[in-house]
Amino acid sequence: MNQIKKLVLIFIFFFLFLSIIIALSIGSVQIEFFKILAIILDQIGFPIDEIWTSGEQVIILELRLPRVLMSVVVGAMLAVAGVAAQGLFRNPIVDPYIIGIASAAGCGVSLCVVLGFASLLGLFTIPLVSFLFAMLAIIIIYKLSQTRYRMSMTVLLLAGIAFSFFFSAFTSFILYFSEEKVHYILSYLMGSFWGTSWVDLYIVFIVMIPGTIILYFYGRDLNIMVFGDDNAQSIGVNVEQSKRIILIIMTLLTSTAVAFCGSIGFVGLIIPHFMRLLVGSDNRKLIPYSAVGGGLLLLWADVLARNLISPLEIPVGIFTALLGGPFFVYLVVQKKKSGELM
């Protein structure tokens, strides 16, 4: 078993790279594998004879590549945010979506679009509004669930569910009065990588990389927090400060993902779980491996989403939810069996 684990871990990076190339070659227009390699190598700066048409180049570089990379980056973000949420709330069945962050962010974005503020502050308007709404939700939920001695998981989940419903209802309310933008908002809310541009990718990328790195350096704090606040403090963790930083980064990662790709649930739940089986609970291993795992999951989910009933596209969020719903139930049943549910 240990041998298999090690092999998986060694090959997972290689597999991610391979997956990106394969994903680029899949689509309604057939482009050969070597052509894709050639186009990419040419872009990086290798002198290669042009064996491709300019149409193929546009499809690869302007349509497929940003989209594929976006799915990888967003997958990584959501998985890392999931690791942070589970560590922070000391509960393996929490993810940023379950506790209402995503619906708050989605609500903010919808409001922004309907009111026509979408480009008030340029490109950063939507991510900013998304972040503010998410932050508002998480701060209230966090404060509510914090009792004197410890975090009450029951209150956390209840408050999370309540906020999810509240913001979803508010979003529905907005949709109801916005006839001409309904389809746009709906397809956005279901989660999709359709029409990703390089600029979008850059923005998401510059959030994801530092966010993940900061969380990585707070991995030890997260590890120790598993013992509870008082205990962690006596070991020397500045619990309040660390929590605040981790909470902000987690919300930033999630809300940015939501801002660009809508709600894609359950990645942050499934991947940390799966990776914990492979690398253990140490967050300094869990964070990088979850990032890769999350990237892989969303990459393939998106490949399915855009090719299963091509030329029609299925919102990728539907896929992850179809996968994640049963998985969540499985987790609850497992926890119930071991008698430690909440």
């Binding site: 000391r90 598993v226 205990n231 006596s234 963790v237 619990v239 253990g280 609970s281």
Partner: peptide
Amino acid sequence: MNISDIAKKIAVVEQSTSIDFDYS
């Protein structure tokens, strides 16, 4: 004193310990 200085001088063992994620 800041938290890490206290931790260097005082170690605490609490009443009972249970953890939700298993560490080695």
